[in-house]
């Protein structure tokens, strides 16, 4: 048996409201709020990046697992905003945790699916018996070009999952994946902002792959929507995951616990992983959870988890996800936001 033995999320404290961005560009804020169900998004402080958020989320995961970090045998960070083009994020993370030197480490990139891919590989290594513990992290400080639709959603956060074979909090019952070559969103080498193919990112991209992976895993598991207490999908906005849930037969109630994007924004590689942490914060023993990620390019990974009796005992050992999202927020004006995100630079 393999499963999650520790989990954690980190969400920066800064926020910007959709209205503040819309005001700057003369855009129609109500339409974004209605159409995409986005109210505000998290913004990383200037001293935060994929590495720093991964460290905090992973420390929470280690704390909930109660293990010695030195026994972690693999560390994978999935992100499309690794601070270095060449030099791993994972080495800093492993060093900060005290997991060096015997830990397999590499950075993953698959747009917003890099985090779940890291989780899958971490889980697989544990299941194969190659390592005792493995860590998979999804984290991003995603960028949207000024005035682009992505600017209203591109946000920051990290979700971290430790996998092991003992003292499991959420058993992995099934996995599946669905992947094709689909150029819906990309960022070329040396480009600062990603580009996307507009409405092509919807039906042939997000929906096709998310539904493909979800249907695949449900079939493998012989399950239907009613067998689950919760479902969490990749959430580039508030609307897509609700719609995809509905298409799969999930109620709003099953989806809303892990649906953070209306006030968090799209944390890219962190999106469905952080949603999963919010579910694990409240899930009860026996609850089944469906998670389906999506990454442009394009593909989806799917997991079915079942919460164990141990989960409630560790939920309070580290900061929970919803309070991080809802409390202790600082709102930015667009100028400060632009400075924080390196869109404008001080002279000299």
């Amino acid at each position: 048996m393999v499963g999650v033995i520790g989990y954690g999320a980190y969400i920066p404290r800064y926020r910007i409201r959709v209205e503040e961005i819309a005001k700057t560009w003369g855009a129609d804020a109500p339409s974004y709020k209605r159409g995409l169900l986005l109210k505000e998004k998290s913004v990383p402080a200037p001293d935060q990046d994929t590495i720093t958020m991964s460290v905090e989320a992973s420390r929470y995961a280690v704390r909930r697992a109660g293990i010695d970090s030195a026994r972690i045998g693999a560390v994978y960070v999935g992100s499309e905003s690794h601070p270095y083009a060449v030099k791993p994020s994972g080495t800093v993370l492993a060093e900060a945790l005290g997991a060096t030197p015997q830990a397999h480490t590499a950075d993953f990139e698959f747009a917003c699916k890099a985090g779940s891919e890291g989780m899958f590989v971490a889980m697989g290594l544990v299941q194969a018996g190659l390592v005792e513990y493995a860590l998979g992290v999804g984290a991003d400080t995603s960028q949207g070009a000024p005035g682009d639709a992505l600017e209203y959603s591109a946000s920051a956060g990290a979700g971290a999952f430790l996998f092991g074979r003992e003292k499991i909090l959420a058993e992995v019952e099934e996995t599946d994946t669905f992947m094709t070559d689909t150029p819906d969103f990309w960022r070329r080498e040396h480009q600062f902002y990603p580009e996307h193919a507009g409405r092509f990112t919807g039906e042939p991209a997000y929906f096709k792959h998310t539904l493909g992976a979800a249907k695949g895993i449900l079939k493998k598991a012989g399950a239907t929507a009613k067998d689950f207490a919760f479902a969490v999908f990749h959430q580039p906005n508030g609307k897509f995951p609700l719609k995809v849930g509905e298409m799969l037969g999930f109620t709003k109630q099953q989806v809303e616990t892990g649906l953070l994007s209306p006030t968090l924004g799209n944390t890219y590689s962190g999106a469905s992983p952080i949603g999963l942490t919010a579910i694990l914060d409240v899930a009860k023993p026996g609850d089944r959870i469906l998670m389906v990620s999506y990454g442009s390019g394009a593909g989806s990974d799917a997991f079915i988890f079942r919460a164990t009796d141990l989960l409630p005992k560790v939920q309070n050992l580290a900061p929970k996800t919803r309070p991080q999202l809802d409390d202790n927020k600082f709102y930015l004006d667009y100028g400060t936001y632009a400075k924080f995100r390196g869109k404008i630079r001080k002279a000299g």
């Binding site: 402080a45 001293d47 935060q48 990046d49 590495i51 720093t52 460290v55 905090e56 420390r59 601070p83 270095y84 800093v92 900060a96």
Partner: peptide, 16 residues
């Protein structure tokens, strides 16, 4: 908390 302390120019190492 774990944070970035300095960047050594635009092309140098990141210091945490």
């Amino acid at each position: 908390e774990f944070r970035k302390l300095q960047e050594i120019g635009d092309a140098g190492i990141l210091c945490y």
